[in-house]
C-alpha cells in the first residue's frame, strides 16, 4: 500500500484563505496605514532638492563618523544622481526605512521578552530560524492575498525576512549583561523595570544596534525581490534590465544598491560606536 501524499500545501492554502477572508478588515487597515507612511516619507524625500538631501546625509555622517564618511557618502549619492537613479534610490530608501522601523518596533520588545523568559526564548528561536532560512520569495506569496500587489506587500515580506537579527541581538545583548551587575541592581532593591531600563537595556545597546544594522542590510537585500511584487525602486530597475537584457542598466542599479548599503551600514555602525 502506498502512503498517501500529505496535503501540506492544501492545508496552508486553506489556512491562508481563512485568514484573508476573516481578517481582511485588519489587513486592509494595515495596508492603508503603511501606504500612507510610505507615500508621506517618499514624497517628503522627493520634495527635498537632491543637493539638500545630500548635504543632510553628509552632515549626519560627519557628526557621527567624521570627514571621511561625509565625503564618501556625498560622492556616492552624487554618483547615483549622476546615473539618473535618484528617484528609484529614494523609493528604495523609503522601503528600507519603513521596513526597518516596523521590524525594530516589533523586534525590540519581543527580544526583551525572550531574554527575560526562558520559555519564550526556547519557543522563539526555532521560529526565527524558520523565518530566516525560508527562501524570501515565499513570503511574497501570502503577502499578495493579504495586501495586494505593491509596496505594502513588499514591506510585509521585507519585515518578516529582516526582523530575526534584531530580535536575536536584543535577546543576546540583554542575556550577556554580566550576572554581577544584575546582582548589584537586585541587591540595591531595583524593580524589574528599573533593572531593565537602568542596567540591562543601556548595557545591551551596542549589541542591539548591531542587530539593527543587520536588519537594515537584510532589508536592503530584499529590494530586488520586492520589485517582483510591484514595489518601485532600484530593485525595479534591476528587474527591468533583466527583462530587457540590458546588463549595463542592471549593473548601474546594482551598484547604486551597494552604495546605499555602504552608507547605511557605516552610519549605523558609527552610531553604535558612539554609544559605547
Amino acid at each position: 500500500m502506498e502512503f498517501p501524499r500529505i496535503p501540506l500545501g492544501q492545508w496552508i492554502e486553506g489556512g491562508l484563505g481563512y485568514l484573508t477572508s476573516e481578517y481582511s478588515l485588519i489587513t486592509r487597515g494595515i495596508s492603508r496605514v503603511t501606504q500612507t507612511g510610505i507615500s508621506g516619507l517618499n514624497d517628503g524625500l522627493m520634495w527635498l532638492p537632491e543637493w539638500a538631501l545630500m548635504a543632510i546625509i553628509a552632515l549626519i555622517s560627519w557628526k557621527l563618523a567624521g570627514t571621511r564618511l561625509a565625503i564618501g557618502s556625498a560622492i556616492g549619492l552624487a554618483f547615483i544622481w549622476n546615473l539618473g537613479l535618484w528617484d528609484p534610490m529614494i523609493e528604495s530608501l523609503t522601503l528600507v526605512v519603513i521596513a526597518t522601523l516596523v521590524a525594530v518596533t516589533i523586534a525590540i520588545p519581543v527580544g526583551i521578552a525572550a531574554a527575560l523568559s526562558e520559555r519564550l526564548y526556547r519557543m522563539l528561536m526555532p521560529v526565527l530560524d524558520f523565518m530566516q532560512t525560508m527562501p524570501a520569495f515565499v513570503y511574497l506569496i501570502p503577502a499578495i492575498p493579504f495586501f495586494g500587489i505593491g509596496s505594502v506587500s513588499a514591506i510585509f515580506a521585507t519585515v518578516i525576512f529582516s526582523m530575526p537579527p534584531a530580535i536575536r541581538f536584543t535577546t543576546l545583548g540583554i542575556r550577556q549583561v554580566p550576572i554581577e551587575l544584575i546582582e548589584a541592581a537586585d541587591a540595591f532593591g531595583s524593580t524589574r523595570r528599573q533593572k531593565l531600563l537602568k542596567v540591562q537595556l543601556p548595557l545591551s545597546l551596542p549589541t542591539v544596534m548591531a542587530g539593527i544594522n543587520q536588519t537594515i542590510m537584510l532589508a536592503l537585500s530584499m529590494v530586488v525581490i520586492a520589485a517582483m511584487i510591484g514595489a518601485d525602486g532600484l530593485g525595479n530597475e534591476v528587474w527591468r534590465a533583466i527583462q530587457r537584457l540590458r546588463p549595463g542598466d542592471g549593473f548601474e542599479a546594482g551598484i547604486a544598491v551597494v552604495i546605499l548599503a555602504m552608507i547605511l551600514d557605516r552610519l549605523t555602525q558609527a552610531l553604535r560606536k558612539q554609544r559605547n
Binding site: E180, A184, A187, F188, G189, L203
Partner: peptide
C-alpha cells in the same frame, strides 16, 4: 542592605557619581 562585590560590579555606562547615586536613584 547595601552590598560591595568582589569584582566591584560597577555600572560601566555610569559615571562614578552616577554609580554612587544608584541606590538613592531607584
Amino acid at each position: 542592605f547595601s552590598m560591595v562585590f568582589q569584582n566591584f560590579a560597577l555600572f560601566p555606562h555610569r559615571t562614578v557619581q552616577q554609580n554612587a547615586e544608584y541606590g538613592l536613584e531607584i
